[in-house]
Simulated assay, not measured.
Amino acid sequence: MSYRAGILGVGYEGRSIDEFVTGLADMGVTRLVDVRMTPISRKRGFSKSALCQALAPHGIVYEHRRELANPRESRPGFAGNLEGAALLLTRRAASCGQAPSLDGGSAAAGSSEASRVLY
């Protein structure tokens, strides 16, 4: 299967860490941008350090971007509303003006170099 560069939203509910990471690797993901306010999870393998370690052998770089998170006070309005959540993420990414590049610099959001995963 062929995938084009860009931003992809994914979630990990119902998946093991191995299923999640394998799925990302199969899609050709090179960087995972974690947009959780706090990068911790009760689910084994999905906290920041463990996730970073699981991604590394697959050549996937982990990056936490708290500024892209949905603030707690606005979450009730997005419950069950995937379009609203996607719109919020798009607006937040646009307000930052740039997406981080693979080499630690920056690339304009939407460019072929801005191949990212937000979850």
Rank of each mutant, 00 (worst) to 15 (best):
H58I: 02
G110C: 15
L51F: 14
F78V: 00
E113V: 15
A99D: 10
V117W: 00
I7E: 15
L102H: 04
A85S: 10
P39Y: 09
R15K: 05
A50L: 15
A50R: 13
I40G: 11
A99C: 10
R65I: 15
A85K: 08
A54N: 13
A54K: 09
G77R: 00
A56P: 01
A94G: 08
N81A: 01
E63C: 05
R36M: 05
R42D: 07
E113A: 09
S115K: 08
G97Y: 05
L89N: 04
H64V: 14
A5H: 13
T30F: 02
L82H: 12
P76E: 12
L32G: 09
C96Q: 07
P76V: 11
F78W: 07
P39A: 10
V10T: 14
V117D: 00
E83D: 05
A109K: 04
V35Q: 13
G80D: 06
A54R: 14
G105F: 08
R36K: 07
G59Y: 00
C96T: 15
E113T: 10
R75S: 00
H58Q: 05
D26T: 04
E67T: 13
G23A: 00
H64Q: 12
L89T: 07
K43P: 10
A93R: 15
A107E: 14
A107L: 05
V35R: 03
D103H: 15
A94E: 09
Y3V: 06
V10C: 07
G84F: 01
R116V: 01
F78K: 01
F20Y: 12
L87T: 08
A5W: 15
E19F: 03
A94I: 14
G105Y: 02
Q53M: 12
S115C: 11
S16R: 09
T38S: 09
E19N: 11
L87F: 06
T38F: 06
T30Q: 12
A69K: 05
R116Y: 02
G11R: 07
E13Q: 12
R15E: 06
R31E: 09
F20K: 03
H64M: 14
M37Q: 13
G14D: 04
F20S: 02
V21Q: 01
K48M: 11
G77M: 06
G11H: 05
Q98V: 06
Y12S: 04
G9P: 11
D103A: 14
R31T: 09
A107T: 06
E67W: 08
P39S: 12
P76S: 13
V10F: 11
D34E: 05
L82M: 03
K48W: 11
A79H: 06
G97T: 09
S47P: 14
R4L: 13
G6Y: 03
P100I: 04
Q98H: 13
G9E: 06
A25G: 00
Y12Q: 12
L24N: 01
G84A: 02
G59E: 02
L102K: 10
L87M: 14
L24A: 02
K43I: 14
G6K: 02
V117E: 01
K48V: 06
K43Y: 08
S49D: 14
Q53F: 02
D26N: 11
L68S: 11
G104A: 07
P100N: 04
R4G: 12
L68P: 10
V117H: 00
